[in-house]
Amino acid sequence: MPERLRADLVLEYPFTRTTGPVIGGFLTGLREGMILGIRRSDGTVLCPPTEYDPESSEPLTDLVEVGPGGEVVSWTWVDPPRSQSPWDQPHGLGLIQLDGADTPIVHGLLVEGPSELSVGMRVTARWRPEREGHIADLEGFVPEGAVR
């Protein structure tokens, strides 16, 4: 009787992927509790940073620290929270222009209700204690001066 051939089948996704020096730099910064933007040739700073200038397409390399304070450029209220999001309570979603940056970043606004939100209000970053290099290492932004 011929020998029966046998091979195990393991379903897997055997790839790893690097996020590169810019996005990877930003994510590593988050792990360290630091928010990074990137400087364009005209001196303005993009946050979150992109690998290429969105207008001129030139490569960007000069990461600079921004925040952790900033100003709310726009906001809305999310209730109920979306099931796959990092937030399990009703929360604000905002465009937040961090100090030292010239473009706003999208993130959560952690307040009790929409009446506490306004355009131009000052906020500051709130960090998760355990961080892994992920956008949700930032728990969100809270009004400046709020008890942390």
């Binding site: 996020t19 996005i23 930003f26 994510l27 979150p48 450029v73 726009s74 906001w75 809305t76 999310v78 979306r82 796959q84 999001s85 990092p86 979603l93 905002g94 465009l95 970043i105 999208v106 993130h107 959560g108 355009v119 992920h134 956008i135 949700a136």
Partner: peptide
């Protein structure tokens, strides 16, 4: 629609399409 967003900065926050449109509307 969150799956059409970039996978590092926006996508993992799962901001829904109405909320993102609301940010534009307020501006």
């Amino acid at each position: 629609l969150s799956t059409q967003l970039d996978p590092y900065y926006l996508g993992p926050l799962w901001p829904d399409a109405f909320a993102l449109a609301a940010l534009q509307a307020r501006i």
